[in-house]
Design a protein around this nucleic acid. Structure first.
Length: 731
DNA sequence: GATTTCCTTATTAAG
DNA sequence: TAAGGAAATC
């Protein structure tokens, strides 16, 4: 027992220790940036299990991302030295999904219910609008989707809403209702529905609620400031009056209000639960004193906060540096030049340097500069694996195999690849489905049994139905070993590989590789996660965990990302760029105090990512949306103590104006050739018979699979397989 | 059914 | 400016 005390508490400071060893009761741990938040959560759980003798089975730990959930489990097991079974650790959505799978019957869902991701939901809404003959310009699918999700996030059904006589509102409510019916018919559950449905079942079933309340003696929540209304309601319901909530979060790092998070949840928690003990973790282990002082000063401008002041035992460190760029090109040039200098002359790793920006569009300038400087880089937040077109297409087939009533999947692949089932035929199916209130699949079967369709269409439809039926037979009796085989067979039978190969978007090879990866993912899943219905659980896994957003490369690279994706990370040197009124704070947020405060918190998050060096830059002129802007420096500069800031003087070069990027790249390439693939080198000028003139930017592979990426002047960025592309070089 | 042209729009993004 | 979507056209 004593040994476990030492092991768990040894490395903690007093505040962390107080949180870890707190007696049962509602605790709100305000964990500042870099104060060891995850560590407290992990050690708290270890403490409960090892010292208080709490059974893992009675613990519930909730996070926002799968990554955080995995990390938590791994770290707990590392401390305890053994796997902890029975503990529920996961995301709100993951746990809700688990609950609904266990209680599908009580939730009035089909056992094979499918999860719709945001994209599926969007498509479904679009189809619905079309079938109702509504003009998308007047009823934008995005807006309808936002309406539905916002209300679900707030725990409201269409029947709870009142139009107040407003015609538009009235129609929105009707669309919400209609959409929900479509979901029920298809046995589909969107992300917000997972939470809402779980909440309703628990609320309406005292016996189930009692069971889970008895079971979960301790509820621990990470990033509590990011919870939305339904998530908070769910926590309250589950906790009852047990006073067993251990919440960790930081109201100053709440940056997701726009997707439903309510800072009020954390700010008002002590009012909702007056017996709450608040613990503050204010010692920061990451940044220098100057960085923390500046961040503290900035965030002090937010009137509504619980209040917290970060401090460190480390020295003051270097001043924060500000660079006023001539324009956005100069800004990128400056940042990249500094990074090159740090890496070459001061021995920093490229991955120690992060370039942060408010909007994704800003990344391009930096990428171009980095390419010119020949510095490898990595952009966070690209498309994720399970979101790729070819993956979603294939999964749609598998979804039909698992549940043929899945209308979203049905519509996606009914004519993909093209098999002669046109809009006319699909319209007939839709009409039939609406009339009989059944799924498209059933409607197809019904239509085929009558002579409604022309012979040609009917033949095509019959072949499609047979195709799916055949796939279903292939699935029957499939066990763990066969899941990858099933995937392989289904993918082949769809004809999708040939379809992608034919497409001339230059992505054919990549798509085929991804399909192979999908089979590989099925293989791993079958080996690691045995379940009674492997296919269904794989599909759920694909929806709930879309995979990593950043390309994993092993090369040491400069890190590029939005301020939002930087949350939770840290770097030796951080550049926050584009700090201008209208861009940061963003124009859409200025004018609304609550949103402006969130922009300020975002800036605070960005600043506290830096360990040693922090650079803040803005441009006096910026080309945006095709016009030249002359933005004001951001108000955030005025909120920083001037004595902590050091101005970096512009070098003469920066004032030279806009240098032609093409000529600079070409000059660089001639002086310093970097071989890429098939004898082409970086920056080389080439001519394509169809696309015209362009510059070589990237390359990979060799022999017949060698391909290069070319930025064409008129045709834009293309990947070209050298075997096919008849490229000429220009000297 | 694919390709071209026109038109609109322009934060942030996990599950 | 440029990207993405939808109508228009081959």
């Amino acid at each position: 027992m004593y040994d476990s005390h030492i092991q768990i508490l040894d490395s903690l400071n007093d505040a962390q220790r107080a949180a870890v060893t707190a007696e049962a009761g509602n605790r709100l741990v305000l964990a500042g940036a870099g104060s060891g938040k995850t560590r407290v959560l992990v050690h708290r759980i270890a403490w409960l299990i090892q010292v208080d003798g709490v059974r893992p089975w009675s613990l519930l730990a909730v996070t926002f991302t799968n990554k955080a959930a995995r990390e938590m489990r791994t770290r707990i097991e590392a401390i305890l030295g053994e796997p902890v079974g029975g503990m529920w650790v996961g995301t709100f959505h993951g746990l809700a999904h688990r609950f609904l799978r266990a209680h599908w019957n009580d939730a009035k869902l089909p056992q094979q219910f499918q999860i719709l991701d945001a994209d599926d939901q969007f498509r479904m809404i679009k189809r619905m609008l079309k079938s109702l003959n509504l003009d998308e310009a007047r009823w934008p699918p995005r807006v309808v989707q936002g309406f539905i999700n916002r209300h679900k996030d707030n725990g409201l059904r269409a029947s709870h809403l009142d139009s107040g006589g407003d015609v538009i509102q009235q129609r929105m409510i009707q669309l919400y209702q209609e959409y929900q019916q479509l979901c029920e018919r298809a046995g589909a559950v969107d992300f917000a529905e997972l939470l809402l449905r779980t909440h309703e079942v628990l609320r309406d079933r005292p016996d189930l609620l009692h069971h889970y309340r008895e079971r979960f003696q301790h509820i621990l929540v990470d990033e509590f400031q990011d919870t939305n209304a339904i998530q908070y309601a769910w926590l309250r319901l589950l906790s009852g009056d047990a006073d067993n909530l251990f919440l960790v979060g930081d109201d100053d790092q709440s940056i997701y209000g726009w997707r439903g998070a309510r800072v009020e949840n954390i700010q008002n928690f002590p009012l909702d639960y007056p017996n709450t003990q608040i613990l503050r973790l204010e010692q920061n282990y990451r940044s220098t004193g100057n960085i923390l002082d500046a961040a503290n000063a900035l965030i002090a401008n937010n009137p509504t906060r619980l209040g917290k002041n970060l401090w460190t035992r480390q020295g003051t460190g270097e001043p924060i540096r500000r660079y006023v760029a001539f324009n956005e090109v100069d800004e990128a040039r400056f940042v990249v030049e500094r990074i090159r200098h740090f890496c070459q002359d001061q021995g920093l790793c490229r991955s120690d340097c992060a370039i942060l920006y408010r909007t994704t569009a800003q990344s391009r300038l930096f990428e171009e500069s980095l390419i010119q400087a020949e510095l490898p880089y990595r952009v966070y937040g690209g498309q994720r694996f399970f979101e790729r077109l070819e993956i979603k297409d294939s999964l749609a087939y598998l979804r039909l195999v698992s549940n043929p009533d899945d209308d979203a999947a049905f519509e996606r692949v009914i004519n993909l690849p093209a098999r002669g089932i046109g809009p006319r035929t699909v319209d007939v199916l839709r009409a039939q489905a609406r009339e009989t209130g059944s799924s498209l699949w059933r409607s197809a079967l019904a239509v085929l049994s009558t002579a409604t369709l022309p012979t040609r269409a009917s033949g095509a439809l019959r072949r499609f139905v047979e195709l799916i039926t055949q796939m279903q037979q292939g699935r029957d009796g499939a066990d763990e070993r066969e899941l990858p085989d099933l995937f392989q067979d289904v993918i082949q039978a769809t004809g999708l590989p040939a379809h992608y190969e034919k497409a001339k978007d230059g992505k054919g090879i990549e798509r085929l590789e991804n399909l192979e990866q999908l089979v590989e993912a099925a293989r791993r899943f079958a080996a690691e996660a045995p379940a009674d219905d492997l296919l269904a659980s794989f599909l759920a896994h694909a929806a709930l965990e879309a995979g990593e957003a950043e390309a994993d490369d092993h090369v040491d690279s400069v890190q590029l990302m939005t301020l939002h994706s930087a949350k939770g990370l840290e770097f030796h040197t951080v550049f926050i760029t584009g700090i201008e009124e209208g861009l940061f704070p963003h124009g859409m947020s200025i004018g609304e105090p609550a949103r402006l405060e969130e922009e300020r918190r975002l800036c605070y998050v960005g600043m506290t990512r830096a360990r040693e060096q922090l650079y803040l830059t803005y441009a006096e002129s910026r080309r945006m949306h095709g016009r030249e802007d002359y933005p004001m420096p951001s108000r955030f500069f005025r909120e920083l103590p001037p004595e902590l800031l050091e101005e970096v003087r512009a070098s003469g070069v920066s004032r030279a104006g806009r240098v032609s990027k093409k000529s600079a790249a070409a000059a660089n390439a001639r002086a310093n050739p970097v071989a890429l693939a098939g004898g082409f080198y970086l920056g080389q000028q080439v001519v394509h018979p169809k696309f015209g003139q362009g510059v070589v930017l990237n390359g990979e592979g060799s022999g017949s699979s060698a391909r290069i990426q070319v930025n064409f002047e008129s045709a834009g960025m293309k990947w070209l397989v050298l075997t096919y592309a008849r490229l000429k070089t220009i000297e």
